[in-house]
């Protein structure tokens, strides 16, 4: 294949990137420079640094962190056990299955489950604990988000555990390492790339969660995603919505850079420049 045909094959890819990656980002930055009345201004950026939006940013990061941490806590052992089971693919399928159901439907199902007269509270009543407020609390918000994101955490960890050469574990055991040391020194470091991409796949969407904040948390949790939705759909203040989106994009880029492994990070950089 000579250079010319190779360049030719690049065209659709470049067009795709330009139309669906570069152009939207440029548009978002462009919109962020106008106020509600359509005048050019940097005021939106100044507004972002007021206490209201700063507090919102902090709480977004805090909840995204909680969601990621709990997802990891559940997903790692689950993925580990999965690699040990007989019918791996079947179990994996069962874990992925819920992600085929529409998000809104799942959220509504939790409304029924967690309600004052819902299933969970009937069980609590039966056990003797009594009815608790579950819906519209931080707990229900983090719980439902973790439930929704968990397949995205399990898959990469499962894959990296699968790729792990078992002879390395045997070697560690042969050389006298305890199971815990084997895990800490051999298994975990070698599956770190899976953990990292799992965290990326959960943390980044969790930062901009909306809808669940209303349905499950009853707007008691306000994230940047909620604010963007409000500004675009209700206030029609596209400028402020776009400004928040710009900060989210920056935050995501920073997270990608920090969590990408150093060697791969360098390669990614050179690719970006080429584009």
């Amino acid at each position: 294949m000579n250079a010319r045909t190779r360049n030719f094959y690049l065209v659709p890819y470049l067009l795709w990137i330009a139309l669906f990656v570069i152009a939207p980002i440029v548009l978002i930055v462009y919109y962020s420079l106008f106020n509600v009345e359509g005048q050019f201004t940097f005021g939106n950026y100044a507004k972002f640094f007021t206490p209201v939006y700063m507090q919102m940013t902090l709480s977004s990061f805090w909840y995204a962190f909680l969601i990621t941490a709990f997802s990891l806590l559940v997903a790692y052992p689950a993925a580990y056990l999965l690699t040990k089971t007989k019918h791996k693919q079947l179990w994996l399928l069962l874990i992925i299955l819920p992600s085929w159901i529409n998000l809104l439907l799942k959220a509504y199902a939790f409304l029924g489950l967690f309600g004052t007269y819902g299933f969970v509270n009937s069980v609590l009543e039966l056990v003797g604990i009594g009815t608790q407020q579950i819906l519209f609390t931080d707990f229900s918000f983090v719980f439902v988000s973790v439930y929704i994101f968990i397949p995205f955490m399990i898959l990469p960890i499962f894959n990296s555990l699968e790729e792990l050469n078992p002879s390395l574990i045997y070697a560690a055991r042969d050389l006298g390492a305890s199971p815990w040391t084997t895990f800490r020194r051999v298994v975990f470091p070698l599956t770190l790339s899976g953990v990292k991409s799992g965290c990326q796949a959960v943390f980044i969407p969790a930062l901009s969660l909306f809808m669940i904040t209303r349905l499950i948390a009853g707007n008691r949790v306000i994230t940047l995603g909620t604010a963007i939705e409000q500004h675009f759909l209700v206030t029609q203040d596209w400028g402020m919505g776009a400004t928040i989106a710009v900060f989210l994009i920056i935050a995501m880029a920073v997270i990608m850079l920090l969590t990408g492994s150093r060697k791969r990070g360098l390669q990614d950089d050179s690719k970006k420049k080429a584009v």
Binding site: Y108, L111, G115, T116, Y117, Q133, L135, F136, R214, L215, A217, G218, N219, R220
Partner: peptide, 14 residues
């Protein structure tokens, strides 16, 4: 308790 959208109908009826 919460600030909700259309679900308010279902929640209040329940």
């Amino acid at each position: 308790k919460a600030i909700v959208g259309d679900e308010i109908k279902m929640l209040l009826a329940n």
